[in-house]
Structure formats: C-alpha cells, structure tokens
C-alpha cells in the first residue's frame, strides 16, 4: 500500500513515519502550514524546515497553507490529502495522533470522505514510552516551542534526563507535549540521509511562552 504521512517535522510524526516505512511505501509527506500559532490541529513553528527534512528523507512533500480557524485547517487537510491521492496513488494516511479524540475524529472523518485508510500507530501509547523509543531509535530531537515550560528548554536536545524529568511532572504536564506544552524538531532520525544543522536562530516570546525560529539551516 502507498501511504502518506501527516508530517509536522516533530518527534511524533517522525516516529509514525518510521513505523509506516516498516510496513508500507511512504509515497509522500503532507504538511499544513498554519499562518499563525493559533491553529488547534497543526504544529506551527518552523514548518519551513519540513522542506529540508523531506529533502533529507528523499520523500516528496505536499505543503498547504491554512488560516487559523478549524474550518480552514480541515479544508486545507482535505485538499492536501486529495492531492496525495491523485499525485501519488496514496491509499492510506499515517498520523502521529496519540490521545486527542478531537484530532483523531477529524482525521478519521476526512480519510473516510476520501476513501483512505487511516493509521495512528502511536494511538493511546504511554507518552514516556514514545520519548524513550525515539531516543532508542537514534532520533536527534530539539525543543522549538514551549508554553508553560521554561524558555531555557528551547534548542536543548531531548535526552534521558529530560525524559525522567517529564515523567516526574506527568501529573500536570503531558509528557509528549500533546497539550501544547512544547513542540519539537527532529534534526536526525534513521531515515534521514543527512542531518539538519542549524546555522542561525532567534528566540522570541516570554519566559514561559517562547518559540525558537530557525533562520538558516542546512543538511550536512
């Protein structure tokens, strides 16, 4: 089966991609690029870097821009998946959804409308086990947005120490950041042919609500 992966460039969609690659032919990546960070469904920071990731993966990328509201996001997703179906004969969609029934419901409905299979290989996974698996599989992950965590996390590489810290905080923090507590960027993983090197970046925002904007990056 040819599948596409809903790809944000973060840890979850990259792990979902790796699992999809083990069973199916990943024909393309689909990324929505919200105009602002208010989008409730898709990641915002550094969506431009997804182009570098796609290049490193050697997988075609379909990128659609969408407005902040839900209707626009879902319409853009529908259009992007329809393109994936038409251009790459995709029969299924793979997502990195973990626990949000809001998100899963919308993905499932759009896939059904387009007569596409929907796969959610991280669904209901323990969030700490996802972080551990990504590290065990050699992912190089950095934090690019925090909302509720200290901005000093930005640019830091996810490691076992941070995973243990998140495990202790899990009574008030979703360890996978699914509540928007943080977002990540994958600089390297087993399917990348080259890793991403960040050459220049800027941090904007306050002490506990900040974003790392990558200004220049290259594949090395």
């Amino acid at each position: 089966m040819n599948v596409c992966v809903l790809y944000s460039g973060g840890k979850d969609s990259n792990l979902a991609l790796l699992k999809a690659h083990e069973e199916f032919e990943v024909s393309c990546l689909v990324t929505l690029s919200p105009k602002s960070e208010e989008s409730s469904i898709f990641h915002y920071p550094n969506t431009e870097l997804v182009k570098l990731q796609a290049e490193s993966l050697g997988i075609p990328l379909i990128m659609e821009t969408c407005s902040d509201d839900e209707e626009s996001s879902l319409k853009a997703l529908y259009n992007a998946l329809r393109k994936a179906k038409e251009l790459y004969s995709v029969e299924g969609v793979v997502t990195g959804a973990i626990r949000s029934t809001y998100q899963a419901t919308r993905f499932q409905r759009i896939c059904d409308d387009l007569e596409l299979w929907c796969f959610n290989p991280l669904w209901l996974r323990d969030e700490i086990s996802i972080l551990n698996e990504a590290l065990e599989r050699g992912f190089e992950i950095i934090f690019v947005r925090v909302a509720g965590l200290d901005r000093s996390m930005l640019g830091k590489r996810l490691n076992e120490e941070i995973v243990q810290k998140f495990a202790k905080m899990r009574s008030y923090l979703n360890p996978a950041g699914e509540g928007g507590e943080y977002e990540t960027l994958v600089l390297n993983m087993p399917l990348f042919k080259k890793r991403i090197k960040i050459l220049e970046f800027e941090i904007i925002g306050g002490e506990f609500d900040a974003t790392l904007i990558v200004k220049r990056a290259e594949l090395v």
Partner: peptide, 12 residues
C-alpha cells in the same frame, strides 16, 4: 489486516 493497525487497536 495490517500490523500498523494493531498498534492502534490491539496494543492498547
């Protein structure tokens, strides 16, 4: 039918 679906429907 597919093992990727088992991650979603059997593992939990």
């Amino acid at each position: 039918r597919y093992s990727l679906s088992e991650e979603e429907f059997v593992r939990p």
